[in-house]
Amino acid sequence: MLKIENLHAAVDGKPILNGLSLTIAPGEVHAVMGPNGSGKSTLSYVLAGREGYEVTEGSVSFHGQDLLAMEPEERAVAGMFLAFQAPVELPGVGNANFLRTALNAVRRARGEAEMDAMQFLKLARARMKVLNMPEDMLKRPVNVGFSGGEKKRNEMLQLAMLAPKFAVLDETDSGLDIDALKMVADTVNSLRGPDFSALVITHYQRLLNHIVPDRVHVLSAGRIIKSGGPELAQELEASGYAGVQAAA
């Protein structure tokens, strides 16, 4: 369970999140929508513990733990996963090596045995097949020279392999073709269950046709100004944010 209470955060001294509260119960998927610059990526970075994102007020508890007191890697191995809006390139670092190191870090934390190269390859190949990723992407350096869509697929491969308790998807659907969009939805849906929850940040209702959220929230100027069921996304698609913002 993720419980965000009255969260205030600043970047370079500039307040971006201004009293955000949100509770996501195990098994639930929530969507966050909102205009450009409203603070969606900032929220995802604060949850993941990125340096420079200073929490000035409020609290976040994650399965009973004080999330904000943890290092980024501690949050990761505790089951917090962020699919980046702009996945980062790691020149010279093989994708397989990176993914296996990450997987074994997570497995160690869960008290599971580390995976050797053979076991890992078997699992990775199977997952890549589902994601329609060519196998040579395992050998290539992480995200280097990947197309925009390939980078997003690679994020979904990591998500599927690491099987976290909680996933934040920051506009994973942006810039994807229809098939890729379905692949993102399939990845999330396959993880859905009582031990998994997610926060899906998106600008488009069409992703939510495939990942049907339990709740939809509208973020504006660093606060949630409206929440509702899946129908709220359709409403926004039809009439934009202006109406909601005026009413708030």
């Binding site: 513990g49 980024p72 990761a76 980046f84 980062v88 790691l90 990176f98 190191t101």
Partner: peptide, 18 residues
């Protein structure tokens, strides 16, 4: 780059090493 690695569970030294 460091943040990306750490978000995937690598500690700072492992991230730098990688």
């Amino acid at each position: 780059q460091l943040f990306y690695c750490r978000q995937r569970g690598l500690n700072e030294e492992e991230a730098v090493g990688m």
